[in-house]
């Protein structure tokens, strides 16, 4: 009974989170829905006596990977809302739905064909030993070579990330919203100066001042705003 309730709650969290990732228009909401799925799966790990993996799941996935994704979202300011109603490629959604339902049918069909039972040799598991001990023994005996290769993979990933994300020397930082923000700031400054100037004559003066002070396109835009 307890297992049923745990499974129901965790599975609901997983499915709601997964649907949230796919169907939320705002990428930040999608990332937060992903956390729901990851927690649900961690709970299901605990329900299946994989306690260590549940902890790693929460620490690595929810703690590190989702935070990294959110960092990139915030850093690049790409958290704008995507309109999901337009469908740029005609028939893409229908084809995607057919394909994913096909994958689902394939997997469930394969399960049903074996009567939902596993085939093959069933190992001997000593339930008195903690899962961390068993996992450690397995990693450092049967999977030792793969474990070592994993470290090489991580080094390659770090080097690759630095190579990709670093700017070539001398290249300027491109800030997409910079011109807009500068124009806004100059406009506000000009408005404040106009207010400080007082009457109608002051406004024109402020505009001229703004034009004189700001040589760039941003300053000119601000001056136009004020004179209008």
């Amino acid at each position: 009974m307890v297992e049923l309730v745990v499974f129901a709650v965790a599975a609901a969290a997983c499915l709601v989170g997964a649907l949230g990732v796919v169907f939320s228009e705002n990428p930040v909401h999608a990332a937060l829905s992903l956390v729901g799925t990851l927690f649900g799966i961690a709970v299901l790990f605990v329900a299946q006596e994989a306690n260590f993996l549940a902890a790693v799941q929460v620490i690595v996935y929810a703690g590190a990977i989702v935070v990294l994704i959110l960092f990139v979202l915030m850093l690049l300011g790409v958290d704008r809302v995507e309109n999901l109603r337009v469908e740029p490629l005609v028939g893409q959604r229908a084809a995607a739905a057919v394909l994913s339902l096909g994958v689902l049918a394939l997997v469930v069909g394969a399960l049903a064909s074996t009567g939902y039972e596993v085939t093959g040799p069933v190992g001997e598991l000593d339930v008195t030993v903690a899962d961390v001990n068993r996992l450690g023994e397995s990693l450092f005996t049967d999977y030792l070579f793969a474990f070592e290769i994993t470290s090489v993979l991580l080094v390659i990933a770090v080097v690759g990330a630095i190579t990709l994300a670093r700017r070539p020397r001398g290249e300027e930082i491109v800030d997409p919203g910079q011109a807009e923000r500068e124009a806004q700031l100059a406009r506000r400054m000009a408005e404040a100066e106009a207010r400080a100037g007082g009457d109608g004559a002051g406004e024109g003066e402020g505009a001229e001042e703004a034009e004189g002070a700001e040589a760039g396109a941003a300053g000119e835009a601000a001056a136009e705003e004020v004179t209008r």
Binding site: A50, F52, L53, V56, Q57, V60, Y61, A64, I65, L68, I69, V72, E117, V118, G120, P121, V122, G123, E124, L125, D131, R134, L135, E137, S138, L139, D142, Y143, A146, T150, L153, L154, I156, A157, V158, G160, A161, I162, L164, A165
Partner: peptide, 27 residues
């Protein structure tokens, strides 16, 4: 189901590969 720790070991590797994939992909 199979009473074998091998499946859990594979999950560790999947986690590591996912982390590496996220790092390179986000870059």
């Amino acid at each position: 189901m199979l009473r074998d720790t091998g499946g859990q070991s594979i999950v560790v590797f999947v986690l590591v590969v996912a982390a590496a994939e996220v790092v390179v992909g986000l870059a």
